[in-house]
Design a protein around this nucleic acid. Structure first.
Lengths: 227, 227, 227, 227
DNA sequence: GATGAATGAGGCTTCATTCAT
DNA sequence: AATGAATGAAGCCTCATTCAT
C-alpha cells in the first residue's frame, strides 16, 4: 500500500487535466505551461490583497500579460482560484517526492516523515495555505466540488492510508477518517494561526506538533534520526 | 484565577464600546441593542453568500431596515464584519457562563469542560465559525488588529490560563502558548472541516477530539461524568 | 364580443406589471414612470444604431441618467428591449382607443377602421416597428416567450376576434388564425419594406393595402366615409 | 420578357464578383467556392446564435478553418453577412430554375408557379429568411446599399415583371411597384411569423396565401394542376 | 503559406455610500 | 428623523483583427 500516493497523484493529474479550463487557446501544452506561470505570478498579489480585492487587471499586470492574453488560458477569474488549489496539491506532492519520502518503508517512520515534511512545507508556504483555507469558500460550485474531492482523495486519503498501515493502531474506519482529517487540519496550523505564534521557534513548534499528534494517536514518536 | 475570563470579557466590552462610531451619550445603549439585532439578522445572508457577495442592500433587507437606518448604527460595511467577530466571542462566553462553567474548580475538569463546551458550541455554530475564519482576512487593518488582539487575549488567553493551572503539566511558557493556540484551533476543527466529516457521529467526534487533545498534552481525560 | 380588446389590454397591463423587472427601486409607481421615460428617451439611439450597437452608456446618456440610476429601473439591457415591445402594444392600443374605435358597431366597418388605424399608426412609427421585428429575436428566452404570448393574445387575438365577428366570412378556425396572423403581418408592411417604397404616396398605399386585404379575404371594402 | 430573371441573376453575379476582396486572377474561382463553403458551414451557428453573438472564432470552427485561412476569403465579419444575403438570392434563383420555372409561358400560371415555388422554398429555409430580415440592418452601409439594390432589382424586380406581364391587371406603375413589394413580403410570411402558426398545416397555408394574393390582386387562381 | 496567440478598447453590471426630500 | 434614489468608479469578460513565427 505504500506506493498509493503516487497512484493517487497520477489520478489527480488526470482529473485536473480532464477538466476543461481552456479559454480560447488550443495548444494544450502551452496552456498548461502558461497556467502554471499565471498561478505563480498571480500568487503574490492574491495572497496579499485577497481574492476579491484583487482585480483581473492586477492579475494580468502581475503576470506581465494583457487581459486578453490572460483569458486565453483561463476562462474566468474563478479558474485562477481553482488552479491555485490544484497547484498547491501538486507542489506538496513534489515536495514529498523530492524528499525521498517513498523510499521509507516502516509505517510509523513513514507517518512521522510525512508529518514533518508537510509541516515544514506548509510553514514555508504560509501565505498559500492561509489563502487556500480563506478563499476556497468562494470557489464556484463546480470547482468547489472538484477541489473538495481532490482534497479528500489526495490529501486526507494520503493520511488515511498512512494510518491504516500502522500496526496496532486501534482505530475503526470511522475514527480513522476523523483522524486523517484532523491530521490534515493540524498540519496547517502554523499557517492559519501563524499571526499569533512566535516565528522564531518554528522548528520547536514543528517538534511540538509532531509529539502532540503522535501522543494524541497513542503512538510513540520515532527517534529524531528516523523522522 | 478562575474568574479571569469574566474580567477579560468585561474589558472586551469596554474596548468594543470605546470604538463605537456614535458618541451621543444616551444612544449608546440603543445602539448596542440595534447592533446585536443587525448582526443576528444579517448572519443568515452573510453566511450563505459570503461577505463580498452580500450587499448592504441585502443586509438592510435582512434586518428589515432602510439603508439610512442601518447607517445610523454602523459606519461602514466593515463594521458589520467586525461586530460579528465581537459577537462570536460574546455568545461563546455566554454559553460557557450559562453552562455553569465557572463553578468548576478542579483544573483538569475545567479544561475538559471548557473543551467540550467549546467543541459543542462551535459545532452548533459551524457557519458562524466558518465565516469567521474565512472572512476575517477582509477586515480593515484597524478592525483586524482589534479582532486579533481580542482573540489572543480572550480566546487563546482563556486556554493559556487553563493550561497554566494544571499541575504537573510540564510546558514552558513558549510551549504553553503554542498549545493554547493549538487548542483554540482544534476546537474549530468540526466547523472548518465539517464538509468532509460524517455529521451523524458528532458526539463520537467530540469525544475523539477530547481524547486526542488530552493524550496529546500528556493528560488523562477525566471520567465522562466530570467533563 | 366588441369589448374584448379592452379586456385583453387590461390583462396585458396586469401581466406586464406582474412581471418583475425592478432593479433596486422599490416605488412601483415611480419605477413605471421612469421605465416609460427610459423607453421613450432610449428609442432614438436604439432605432438608429440597433440594439447591439447601442451601449448601455449610450442609453443612459440619452435618458439623461447615470448608469447606476438606469439600473435602478431595469435589471438588464434586455429589459429595455422587452419594455419597448410592451410599450409598442400599449401605444397602439391607446391610438385605437383615442380614435374612438370602440364606438363602431358594424363588424365590417370595425375591421376596416382597425386596419386603417393600424396601418397609419405603424406607418407613423416605422422605426419602432422595424426595430421590433428586427430585434425581437435577441430577447432573452423568458422575455421572448412573454412577448410572443402578448403578441398572440393581444395583437393577433384582436384581429382574430374581428374576423370572427364578420358575418358570411367562411373561414374555419385554422384559416382564421392564419388570416389574423397575415393581417398582423401586412399591417407592418410599410414599416418593414419602407426603404423600397415611394414615401410620397403613403395614403395611396394605405388604400391599396386595405383594398388588397379586403379583396384577399373575399370582403367588400366599405365606402371611404365608413372606414 | 420571360427570360429576364436569368439576365438579372447574371448581372447579380457580376456585381457580387466585382466587389470581391481578392483580386488575383486565378484565385477568383477558388475564392468563390470557398466563400460558398463558408456561408454554408457558418449558417448553422449564425442562425442559432444570431450575428452579433457569433464570434469569428465560432465561424472559423464551424468552417473547419483557422482564423487566418478564413480571413483569406473574407476581409471582415460583415462580409459574411453580405455573402449570406447574396447566397440567399442565388439559391432561390437556383430553386426556381431547377423546378423548370422558365419553361412556363402563360403569365398567370407563371405568377402562380413563382408564388408557390417561393413560398415553399422560403418555408424550407425559414431560419435563413428569419436571419436575413433580422440581421440585414446590421450590414455596413456599403454592403447594405448593395443588398437593397440587389433585392429591389432581382427579387422585387422579378415580381414586378411578372405582374407587368399579366393581361388585364389594371395597375399603374406605382401600384405595381407596391404590389411587387407586397408579394415579396407575403412570400416571407411563413418564415417570419412561423412561431405563431400551426406547422402541421404548411401546405394548406401555402394554398391559403396563394388564394389570398390572387384574390387580393383581383386575379383568378389557375386550377391546381397549373400552378 | 498558414497558424492562432496577442491586443486592448469597450461591453454590461454592481454597489458602498451620500443626501435631497 | 427617516427614506431610498442617485452616483460613477470599478468590476469581469469578449472579440474582430493583426502579425510574428
Amino acid at each position: 500500500m505504500s506506493g498509493s500516493i503516487e497512484v493517487q497523484l497520477e489520478e489527480m493529474h488526470k482529473r485536473v487535466t480532464q477538466h476543461e479550463i481552456l479559454g480560447s487557446a488550443l495548444d494544450r501544452e502551452l496552456t498548461e505551461k502558461r497556467q502554471r506561470q499565471i498561478v505563480e505570478s498571480a500568487s503574490g498579489v492574491l495572497f496579499e490583497k485577497g481574492y476579491h480585492r484583487t482585480s483581473i487587471r492586477d492579475i494580468a499586470a502581475a503576470c506581465g500579460m494583457s487581459m486578453g492574453q490572460l483569458y486565453h488560458y483561463i476562462s474566468s477569474k474563478d479558474d485562477i482560484l481553482y488552479l491555485i488549489h490544484v497547484y498547491s496539491q501538486e507542489i506538496w506532492y513534489e515536495h514529498l517526492r523530492d524528499a525521498g519520502f517513498q523510499s521509507i518503508t516502516d509505517p510509523v517512520a513513514r507517518l512521522a516523515r510525512a508529518l514533518r515534511l508537510s509541516l515544514e512545507f506548509i510553514e514555508g508556504h504560509r501565505q498559500l495555505y492561509l489563502f487556500l483555507y480563506t478563499e476556497s469558500k468562494h470557489l464556484e460550485r463546480e470547482h468547489l466540488k472538484l477541489v473538495l474531492e481532490l482534497d479528500d482523495k489526495n490529501v486526507v486519503g494520503f493520511y488515511r492510508h498512512l494510518l491504516a498501515d500502522i500496526p496496532g493502531l486501534e482505530l475503526d474506519a470511522a475514527r480513522r477518517d476523523t483522524a486523517a482529517n484532523l491530521v490534515a487540519f493540524i498540519v496547517v496550523f502554523l499557517a492559519l494561526r501563524g499571526w499569533n505564534l512566535d516565528t522564531s521557534r518554528i522548528s520547536a513548534q514543528v517538534d511540538f506538533l509532531m509529539e502532540f499528534v503522535f501522543r494524541g494517536l497513542g503512538l510513540q514518536l520515532p527517534p529524531a534520526s528516523e523522522r
